[in-house]
Design a protein around this nucleic acid. Structure first.
Lengths: 162, 162
DNA sequence: CCTTTGATAAGAATAATTCTTATTTAAGAA
DNA sequence: TTCTTAAATAAGAATTATTCTTATCAAAGG
C-alpha cells in the first residue's frame, strides 16, 4: 500500500516546518528517511528503512537511521508500535482485557472495558488474516514517569539559576 | 496489582492440565515461571521474571526463562505485547488509525474505524497517566503467513507418506 | 527404582541497537 | 557567494537482549 502524492507532499512540508521550528537541521538523510516512512503505509523496522534509503543515499549508515528515527519520535512526527525501546514483554492474562502502555518506561497496566470487548472486527480487517484477539491500546506517559520527569525539570531549572 | 489466590489456583491447574495434554513435562522451573507471571497483573520482561524466580530457584538460567516463555506462548497460555519476536517498528501516520498485527511475522496493517476513534478513555484509565493516543489492536495471523504455514504442513505430510 | 527422552545450566554465539570519535555539512553571518 | 561554527554524519567498536550448543540432569512411565 502506498500513500498518494498529495498526501506525501503534505506530510513532507509539515515535516520541514516542524524541524525548522525546533531549530533542527533539515539534512538530506533526514528528508530521505522521513520520505521513506511517509510514503509507506506499512510499518518497517530500522533495517528495512536503511536498505531502502541506501538505494538513494548510498553512504548512509544504519546508526544514522536509528538516531534519526528516535529523533522523529521525540519530535512527534513518528510513533513506534508496541511497548517502547526495550525488550519483549509477556502477559499471562489470556482473558479479554485492554492495556495502558507507558511510552517512556514500557510499563503496561490492564484495564477492563465492555465497550471495547463488544467491538466487532470489520470484514475489511478480517480479510487481512485470522483474528486471534483484539484489544484497545491506550498509549501515554504513566504517573511514575510524569513524576520522574517533572523532578528532572525542576532540577535542571535549579542548575540554570546558579 | 496482584491476582487473587483463587484466580491464581485456577490458572495453575489449567496450566498443569494443558502441559499434560500436550505431552510436555511439568518441571519445577516451568511451574515457577508460570506462577510468577500468573500472580502478577503487570507485564514483566524475561529478565525481570528471571530475577524473581531466581529467589525461589537459585540455579535457574536466563536461557531457561526465555525458552519456557516462548514454549508457553506456543501453547497459548501466554501472550506477548506488541509486534512479535523481532525488532522495533515505526509508523509515520500520526492521524488516528488502528492496527492489524501479525503475531508470526510482525507485519502490521492500518485500518480506519470510526467506532474505535469514538472510544472515550475511562477515568479509571486516565488515572494511570496522560493519554497520548488510543488505538484498537487486532492480533492474528496474516494471509501471507497462513499460506506459508499451510504449504509447510502440506510438505511435511508428503514427507511422512514416504 | 530403572530407563529413556526431553529439559536444564553454562557459557559461547548472534543480532539489534547504541556509543565514540574523527570528519563533514547545513544554515546563518559577512 | 564564501566563511564560520555548531550540529550531524559515517565507521566501526561496544553493549545488550536473545538464542544456540553441548554436556548433565530429572520427569514420567514401566
Amino acid at each position: 500500500m502506498t500513500v498518494s502524492k498529495g498526501e506525501l507532499d503534505r506530510r513532507l512540508s509539515e515535516f520541514r516546518h516542524r524541524l525548522s521550528q525546533a531549530g533542527i537541521k533539515v539534512t538530506h538523510q533526514r528528508l530521505e528517511i522521513f520520505r521513506e516512512l511517509a510514503q509507506s503505509a506499512e510499518h518497517p523496522d530500522a533495517e528495512t528503512i536503511f536498505e531502502a534509503v541506501r538505494r538513494r543515499v548510498p553512504t548512509i549508515s544504519l546508526d544514522t537511521v536509528y538516531r534519526t528515527l528516535w529523533l522523529f519520535v521525540d519530535l512527534g512526527v513518528l510513533h513506534t508500535l508496541g511497548p517502547p525501546r526495550d525488550r519483549m514483554r509477556f502477559d499471562a492474562n489470556v482473558a479479554p482485557h485492554h492495556h495502558f502502555v507507558c511510552v517512556q518506561c514500557g510499563a503496561t497496566h490492564d484495564f477492563f472495558c465492555e465497550e471495547c470487548d463488544a467491538f466487532r472486527v470489520p470484514d475489511e480487517v478480517r480479510a487481512m488474516g485470522s483474528v486471534h484477539i483484539k484489544q484497545m491500546e491506550v498509549r501515554g506517559v504513566c504517573v511514575k514517569c510524569q513524576k520522574a520527569s517533572s523532578k528532572k525539570i525542576r532540577a535542571s531549572r535549579k542548575k540554570e539559576e546558579t
